[in-house]
Design a protein around this nucleic acid. Structure first.
Lengths: 340, 340
DNA sequence: TTGAAAGCGCTAACAA
DNA sequence: TTGTTAGCGCTTTCAA
């Protein structure tokens, strides 16, 4: 038996019909225990594996899900991917990676893969929703799609997210509690939802503390290391530079600290820095970064579980997004300002 | 047309047979330009997408490849994944992620996915080869599998790798050139091939310089941050601690620097540290890490291109692995020792 | 409890 | 250049 065995081969050897073999292998219960066992033994012996294309065609399922991110190269997605992968695997699903590079055409493309049977469902972690279908008749809310990370203003789609606004607010309140007054913000790529929420958290904390945000204290980055440096440079070219920075993610915080070092400013001696995400390396960074910890693996697991429920036909209440908790990891990049 | 249109629907509207539609859509050239255009227009209008399961079943291809890594959560794979994904995409392939967690059963499972039509080919970046097939008749070299990263002693399988030994040797020679004599090595999880090669590079450099490796100067890690710390602690508990460290990867180097800081040793003032990989964050690290740069995206692209050639039926010469160049990125974590 | 037979949607050999 | 037709390998009625 050098060719790949198929159900027919097993059926012939077992002296039964293909239907019986199919039933036996899927443990349908409509087969006598004896034949069931005989067929299972035969399958093992022949090293039989069902052809997935045939099965998929027949069952109209692919048993895979699409995980679409904006940039596969971003370390932020790692633990999420890990959580998704683990949960998918347990349920017998494979994970197809999608990478949009912020290209709307590619976003649409991945939606199409849902339609053409490539995948049964999708977890979206990109920045925008795709343009409506050609016939404008595509009801997004009816597609098996789960949005994670609140990057999309996606009314009507099931959501898994963290409370970015509250978390950002808490981070800035930590700086305020340390005695900082001149606190600047390196924002994400506004007007993206997540960036807006984090910035609004910053503003809320400042406002609640009765602090005015000076001109030029809000600079716009794009979550990359390099912009962290650049934005930090801008802030410290001001006549009254800040004593503390809240960066919208860890990578920009790294970049900012890098720049501060170049400028001869000590962290946290001269300037405190807070990030957002708590990447794997933030605790190994010097100084270990104070940052908002996101339960990334849990986000992945939760999003995938939610998708599984949808795929199983369950009516999922869309109204309220699932919000997972964050926590501020206070490390060594923040301290009280030298002179109050 | 609320249901998903199929070829038959298009055929009926166009007043032609399904075969003609199929040919027109695949631009087979056996159709008049006129009908071809009419069918294309109709397909667009109906928002037609071919059902992949049906096509896969018929063509016996899945147009996807499996990228199997040991730990999807490891940032090292990011750029490789990116390279693989980009190249796969251009050729019309999707990428399925496989994660083995070092579990041999899961490795075998992914090999099975190749057999059951889940994927047409596989890029392996795990630590070991799977056990031979049940019937021991599976000829590995005949499977469409490409090995990247030289983690496997995989005689007979096509390979994409870097020269780990030479790169490690060059890294240690850099330390020697700076004047270091007491140089220790934090190794990877020996006896894995890659870890062995990097260690051998260290040994070769020491030997060529006429330096003896003191007892206890080679410690075994497992590529993780934490072991970097631990191993570093061991080295500096020695009566004659080293003045320089060569870590088998960046993460362990980060961990080591972390520990050195805890021990009150300045890097590079008291101790120089060299890593291996040049992760994205190594240049933002403090001090910016001197490390061996691997062309990760290029490794991904090359591995995928190689796989595409194999899938297209080309006879690929297996004898010589493809070796991509590395370069030492000299940054601020290395300097001459204080006292020679 | 089993078998016969239909058919998922597509491609490709063969005929016209 | 086009149409007819036979499957790809599987699951699932329906009938026995």
């Amino acid at each position: 038996m050098s060719e790949r065995p198929k159900i027919k081969d097993i059926a012939e050897r077992a002296g039964v019909s293909v239907a019986t073999v199919s039933r036996a292998l899927s443990d349908s219960g409509l087969v006598t225990a004896e034949t069931r066992q005989r067929i299972h033994a035969l399958a093992r012996e022949l090293n039989y594996r069902p052809n997935v294309s045939a099965r998929n065609l027949r069952t109209r399922k692919s048993m895979s899900v699409l995980l679409v991110v904006r940039d596969v190269g971003n370390p932020f997605y790692l633990d999420i991917l890990k959580g998704v992968e683990a949960t998918a695997r347990e349920a017998g699903y494979s994970v197809l990676m999608g990478n949009t590079e912020n290209d709307p055409d590619r976003e649409t493309e991945y939606f199409n893969m849902l339609r053409d049977g490539h995948a049964d469902g999708m977890i979206l972690m990109t920045g925008k929703l795709p343009p409506a279908g050609h016939d404008a008749g595509v009801d997004l809310a009816r597609l098996p799609v789960v949005v994670a990370l609140e990057m999309i203003e996606a009314a009507g789609l099931p959501h898994v997210q963290v409370d970015n606004l509250a978390a950002a607010k808490a981070a800035v309140e930590h700086l305020i509690a340390l005695g900082h007054r001149r606190i600047a913000h390196i924002a994400g790529p506004l007007p993206e939802v997540m960036a807006v929420h984090r910035r609004d958290g910053y503003r809320a904390a400042m406002h609640d503390a009765g602090l005015v945000i000076p001109d030029g204290y809000e600079v716009r980055g794009d979550y990359l290391l390099e912009t962290g440096q650049l934005c930090c440079g801008q802030l410290f070219a001001l006549s009254e530079p800040p004593t503390a920075l809240f960066a919208a993610n860890d990578e920009m915080a790294y970049g900012a600290i890098h720049e501060l070092r170049r400028l001869g400013r000590d962290v946290p001696g001269d300037v405190s820095v807070v990030g957002f995400d708590d990447l794997y390396l933030s605790k190994a960074f010097y100084p270990p970064l104070t940052t908002v910890n996101q339960p990334r693996a849990d986000i992945g697991r939760t999003a995938m579980s939610l998708l599984l429920r949808i795929l199983s036909g369950e009516e999922v209440a869309l109204a309220a997004p699932i919000v997972l908790p964050t926590a501020l990891s206070i490390r060594a990049s923040t301290a009280s300002p030298r002179h109050f």
